[in-house]
Amino acid sequence: MDFVEKARIMDGPRINRALARLASEIVEENHGAGDLYLVGIRRRGVPLAERMADKIADLEGARPPVGILDITLYRDDLSTVGAEPIVNRTELPGDIESRNIVLIDDVLYTGRTIRAALDQLIDYGRPRRVQLAVLVDRGKEHRELPIQADYIGKLVPTKKSEIIKVMLQDFDEEEGVAIVERPSAETG
């Protein structure tokens, strides 16, 4: 299915600068990197978490551990998802107990992914605190659950018919964030 690109809202350098700012906000809020533990949500949250950890290492001299969550088994829309992606592994090395967890994802939209991630995280242990960092927040009016981000790369108010496409060189040919829309024939 072809999507029509409506606007390019971030390019590679801009993503990089946003991550640098988020890294600095995170260490300021958590008084350093000591108890920090970053957790990327598959797929695109994972490289974002790795980059964020590198930036925190530059700032503080210590790199926080990075874990990976695959939320497939915790979704609330199991029977309505069409194609079935393979269930990937969740990897949370070490102990998350008493750590300051920062969940990292590319886009915050309805909040349901974050709900699933929180449920899964708590099955692994009892962190002292869980915060949320996203590269793009699509705006509060789309939220279906009382979930908000603590750190936001860019706030982008969008319509429901629009889709935020985050491209990272780990998975895509280029780096950037675009607003795309399905061709109008598809709607309805």
Partner: peptide, 23 residues
Amino acid sequence: TYLLDTAETFRDVSRREIKKVPA
């Protein structure tokens, strides 16, 4: 192969302290 790959992921669930997912 797809079944075996999927099973590999589920092996992790039984190694957790809380051996249950809500799927």
